[in-house]
């Protein structure tokens, strides 16, 4: 895959190109398949808020966007996580297609896989464990990919994407689950200097992803690498009961998820560990203090999933109106 850093200057040229139209039809089918699968599993689709007094602080190094809400500083949502947890007081199994805005560091403009505006297929299940959440994610991805192979052959043909790329994914073999520590050891063996206390960096992720022929889970990230809501493993302090799902062929991360912290004192302590000021999470902490269900869930990057399905060079090609970090665009 080439590194492409610039979006098309002209939205008309982008929207009318046969490739973009094929990609957007695939995206439409992906959303159909998500709703078909999760609807059949008893999930309720909810519409997530776009603004709120506080949002997910867990996006590494990305700036949030302030909105003046009648004199109060509100935020555009960087993820739906706080609202997903709160929504479980209404339904036990929910999902949403959530728009997110993150002013990512400029260095992400050349990763081919960051957008400042993107969507997540967000799923949360009350009472679920991390392993149950990975099963939901795996079944969802397999279903979506199967539907695309079944129903989007003409689009994949336009894009030059060989459906055989998904043979291993659709073979019925379970996705591999590998711990963060094992992945770090792998990377160290290849000579890549991965920080063992941090998120797998983009180069490292690409290395691991390129070696795989079907998606795989990385689990048990170290605590300092994620937001306060990923649950710390009581049996292995310092490690989180969380996961990422990585696509093969070098496409990298598709999805992040976790079992969640849901107990008040633990969340306040974890907020401090992530440098947050609990005062600004007043509405959320009030709900937590009064009790929210334990849960596990995940968010799949919609544009990243479509990029993988379509075999695109860069994630911006999977967006009708792409916003690459730092690039001024419509």
């Amino acid at each position: 895959m080439d590194t492409i850093t610039t979006a098309p200057a002209d939205p008309r040229a982008h929207l009318t190109s046969p490739a973009t139209r094929a990609v957007l039809r695939v995206q439409h089918r992906v959303l159909d398949a998500v709703r078909e699968h999760l609807g059949g599993q008893g999930f309720t689709e909810m519409l997530p808020p776009v603004i709120g007094p506080v949002t997910d602080p867990g996006a590494r190094g990305a700036k949030q966007v302030d909105v003046d809400y009648y004199g109060h500083r509100y935020k555009l949502m960087t993820s739906a996580i706080l609202y997903k947890q709160a929504s479980l007081t209404a339904f036990d199994r929910i999902f949403c297609i959530a728009p997110n805005v993150r002013l990512e560091p400029l260095e992400t403009s050349s990763t081919s896989r960051h957008l400042a505006e993107f969507h997540q297929i967000d799923v949360e299940v009350a009472g679920a464990s991390r392993d149950e959440a990975t099963t939901v994610a795996e079944n969802l991805v397999v279903h979506v990919v199967r539907r695309i192979v079944e129903r989007c052959a003409p689009e994949l043909d336009v894009l030059g994407r060989d459906p055989d790329a998904f043979a291993d994914l659709l073979s019925g073999r379970a996705f591999e689950r590998r711990s963060h520590a094992a992945a770090v050891a792998d990377l160290h063996d290849t000579g890549h200097a991965q920080n063992p206390d941090a998120e797998i960096d983009w180069v490292g992720e690409a290395v691991l992803s390129a070696k795989a022929s079907r998606p795989f889970f990385l689990t048990d990230y170290p605590k300092g690498s994620r937001g306060f809501y990923d649950r710390e493993n009581p049996a292995a302090p310092g490690h989180l009961l969380n996961f990422d799902l990585l696509a093969p062929e070098g496409y990298g991360e598709l999805c992040s998820g976790s079992e969640r912290e849901h107990e008040y004192a633990a969340i306040v302590a974890r907020m401090r560990e992530t440098g947050e000021n609990p005062a600004k999470y007043a509405w959320y902490l009030k709900m937590v203090r009064e009790g929210i269900p334990s849960s596990a869930g995940f968010g799949i990057g919609l544009e990243r999933l479509v990029r993988y399905l379509c075999g695109l060079d860069a994630v911006w090609q999977a967006s009708a109106f792409p916003k690459i970090p730092g690039v001024v665009s419509p």
């Binding site: 920080n195 960096d201 300092g224 690498s225 560990e273 992530t274 440098g275």
Partner: peptide, 12 residues
């Protein structure tokens, strides 16, 4: 400890 690790994670 965790705040320092998060800084290294978020601002490599």
């Amino acid at each position: 400890r965790q705040q320092v690790r998060l800084m290294r994670n978020n601002y490599p």
